[in-house]
Computed example of a mutant assay.
Amino acid sequence: MADKRRFDLFAQFLVERFTAPRIFDIAGGQGRLNEALTRLGRTVTTFDSRHKHLPVRYEQRMFTLDEPCECDLLVGMHPDGATRIIIEYAAKHRLPFAVVPCCSDNGMPYNPWRRYLADLAREQGFPSVEEHVLPMDGRARVVLGDFSASPREPGAGPQ
């Protein structure tokens, strides 16, 4: 069973780590991460094709590389098949990203999938790619990339 605190824990990590006022939440499901980030003072737009969602800023469609760049950070909490596009869009627009991956879109097991995502980010030009572990049950590792940060030890807390 998924940790019910996951959205609040990820949101808190994001606002401590990034000063980004405008955030795109990709494959954000019902918008629970959006809700948590909004409570913390961020302006968030969730992209997902769900029909039922919370009353948050919501684009009911798939996110593409052609989206206008109207954010300062891209995030995904268990974004499944949208994980790669988060990294590719962030690289294209030189924006930071943070994802908590779970399932790969190609059947790859979890640990190799995380390593693949970190390698993809480096290949896309991110000078800083690292991991952080959220204090929760389940898939709790955040893979993040930033063009302005210097690398830190994996699992290190916010600066």
Score class of each variant (00 low, 15 high):
residue 99 V to Q: 02
residue 71 C to Q: 05
residue 104 S to Q: 03
residue 53 H to D: 01
residue 103 C to Y: 13
residue 97 F to D: 03
residue 80 D to C: 11
residue 57 R to H: 12
residue 74 L to Q: 05
residue 74 L to Y: 09
residue 65 L to A: 12
residue 107 G to P: 01
residue 65 L to I: 15
residue 53 H to L: 00
residue 71 C to I: 01
residue 104 S to F: 06
residue 69 C to P: 05
residue 56 V to H: 07
residue 55 P to T: 05
residue 90 A to Q: 07
residue 101 P to K: 00
residue 108 M to H: 05
residue 55 P to F: 04
residue 56 V to G: 03
residue 81 G to E: 12
residue 91 A to C: 04
residue 71 C to L: 04
residue 73 L to W: 08
residue 64 T to C: 03
residue 80 D to G: 13
residue 56 V to T: 06
residue 83 T to A: 15
residue 62 M to L: 14
residue 108 M to Y: 05
residue 94 R to Y: 00
residue 72 D to E: 08
residue 107 G to C: 03
residue 104 S to G: 10
residue 69 C to F: 11
residue 53 H to I: 01
residue 62 M to A: 15
residue 77 M to C: 11
residue 103 C to V: 11
residue 73 L to T: 01
residue 54 L to R: 10
residue 83 T to V: 08
residue 69 C to W: 11
residue 63 F to Y: 13
residue 71 C to G: 07
residue 95 L to Y: 03
residue 73 L to K: 09
residue 87 I to D: 02
residue 53 H to R: 11
residue 70 E to Q: 15
residue 101 P to T: 06
residue 78 H to A: 07
residue 69 C to R: 14
residue 78 H to G: 08
residue 51 H to E: 11
residue 82 A to T: 04
residue 63 F to G: 00
residue 79 P to Q: 00
residue 107 G to E: 01
residue 84 R to F: 10
residue 103 C to S: 08
residue 81 G to F: 14
residue 98 A to Y: 06
residue 111 N to A: 15
residue 64 T to I: 10
residue 92 K to C: 06
residue 68 P to C: 09
residue 98 A to F: 07
residue 74 L to A: 07
residue 54 L to C: 02
residue 61 R to C: 08
residue 100 V to I: 14
residue 92 K to N: 08
residue 90 A to Y: 05
residue 98 A to G: 08
residue 82 A to Q: 10
residue 85 I to V: 15
residue 64 T to Q: 03
residue 51 H to V: 09
residue 82 A to W: 02
residue 77 M to R: 03
residue 99 V to E: 00
residue 94 R to N: 02
residue 99 V to K: 02
residue 51 H to D: 10
residue 108 M to R: 12
residue 85 I to M: 09
residue 58 Y to C: 02
residue 77 M to W: 05
residue 101 P to W: 01
residue 103 C to R: 13
residue 74 L to R: 11
residue 110 Y to D: 06
residue 58 Y to G: 04
residue 111 N to M: 13
residue 52 K to R: 12
residue 89 Y to D: 06
residue 51 H to C: 02
residue 105 D to Y: 14
residue 66 D to L: 09
residue 103 C to W: 12
residue 59 E to H: 15
residue 97 F to K: 06
residue 98 A to H: 08
residue 70 E to N: 14
residue 77 M to A: 11
residue 76 G to R: 01
residue 74 L to N: 04
residue 93 H to F: 13
residue 66 D to C: 03
residue 99 V to S: 05
residue 57 R to G: 08
residue 85 I to R: 09
residue 102 C to K: 09
residue 86 I to Y: 05
residue 100 V to S: 09
residue 52 K to F: 13
residue 109 P to G: 04
residue 104 S to K: 08
residue 110 Y to F: 14
residue 98 A to Q: 03
